[in-house]
Design a protein around this nucleic acid. Structure first.
Lengths: 234, 234
DNA sequence: AAAAGATTAATTGTCGACAATAATACTTAA
DNA sequence: TTAAGTATTATTGTCGACAATTAATCTTTT
């Protein structure tokens, strides 16, 4: 996932840099989900004092990548199926509303950019048909553009600043390379159409269905896995 | 506002206690919105070291009550009308979804509690007709119960752990003692009915309208104020 | 006199050490 | 042998001091 969080500013302080490294390590699974974090050990590994490490940990906690308990310590968050489904439900609510606001607040110029981006993805897709990677990049890119297009700082901060770190973590941990590439592309087209029509209600509806479809796709996979496990046991 | 955040745990560490005091001070307006925060000064006032003060500041930043810039410092968040409207839009999205999930996931027992709570509020209302205070308490109480009823930890954390601190701050700063008491009561009744009918779609719709009505109520007030200002100038 | 630059003061970021709390290992009693 | 209680170790929370950066003051120049 090459695209970076579009809302973050350049890391100036060392705590910022360590935060980014740790964030990467957690999202990519180099630090095991659910594992305990030892402050002295991490501080030694990154060659910083515990103070600046704790500063970095605070930022990780801010985007829900770790959990802290007083006098006990920090743990990397656990990636559970329930948590994943909860995340999608939250995304459905927030990104649905962001999409509605985007239809109301995006400038014509911004809409033009999104349309040309989609056209370019169409080319990529035709070129590398079936390869999900570009489409996944495009997916993230598309969603970011819609969120930023809401022009609602509260929504932007919540989704880009917090939620999407968790989304990326779940994607890596569960190895989710969306197999819905072509279908997602069509759904994106329709959403952009609704936005350029300034139809907020339809835009929200379509975005919610788009995310709900991903969630149901996951639920189906889980159900199949469970069925397979069950047949093994017999 | 007597009701406390139902998701928080008891403050054990001194940073926790200072965080709560600062939170109160910011929400109630004792620390002016938009004002700069001096770490040495605050540390001296609360008789703690800068380290533990910074720990407390990190928590304030987590619930969006202050904003920090690297090498520059912290400021209490500014309460703008745009920010208030953004907050209501975000609430509409999140609490609407929470209400839908509540309709799906609340236990019969939880629903029973909510119904009896509403009945009690009806008594209070009949007793002190027109006095908004109890109703406002009841309003917060009602919304908390619905959110917790979603049984979605992600939604609960976002709304109760972060958004509602800002909501309370705006309410204090703008002196908003809802004049929609009786109307809000009816809306609450209908929402609970939808939940007990397990009608998620209707429950979400009603909750969104309930919050949107508050937002529009504010927008109208603002418009009236602006009109009055304008006529003064002439 | 006003603006640009240099110098000083103040604030934030980082560090290592100590205190308080929790986890572990050990001892003792049933 | 197991369980409870105690002692020990390790981890987290807090502190004061120093370094790096920013803000303020003063000087200098046009």
């Amino acid at each position: 996932m090459l695209l970076q969080n579009p809302t973050k500013q350049a890391a100036v302080t060392t705590a910022d840099k360590v935060f980014e490294q740790l964030q990467h390590a957690i999202v990519e699974g180099e630090m095991a989900a659910g594992s305990k974090i030892s402050e002295p050990e991490l501080a030694k590994r990154y060659e910083i004092s515990r103070s600046t490490l704790r500063e970095a940990l605070n930022r990780l906690e801010k985007c829900h990548l770790i959990e802290r308990k007083a006098n006990i310590g920090s743990r990397v968050v656990d990636c559970t199926i329930e948590g994943l489904l909860e995340l999608y439900i939250t995304r459905e609510a927030l990104e649905g509303m962001a999409c509605r606001q985007a239809a109301l607040n995006m400038t014509d110029e911004e809409i033009g950019h999104m349309q040309s981006m989609l056209a370019q993805h169409a080319g990529d897709k035709a070129l590398q048909d079936g390869v999900a990677y570009y489409q996944e990049e495009g997916d993230v890119d598309f969603h970011y553009k819609v969120i930023l297009g809401s022009h609602n700082q509260q929504l932007i901060n919540l989704i880009c600043g917090q939620l999407y770190h968790l989304v990326r973590m779940y994607r890596c941990q569960f190895g989710m390379h969306s197999p819905r590439a072509t279908r997602a592309f069509t759904e994106h087209s329709n959403i952009i159409q609704a936005i350029s029509d300034r139809d907020g209600e339809l835009a929200e509806l379509l975005m919610r269905r788009h995310i709900a479809a991903s969630r149901k796709n996951i639920e189906n996979k889980i159900a199949l896995q469970k069925a397979a496990q069950h047949s093994e046991e017999i």
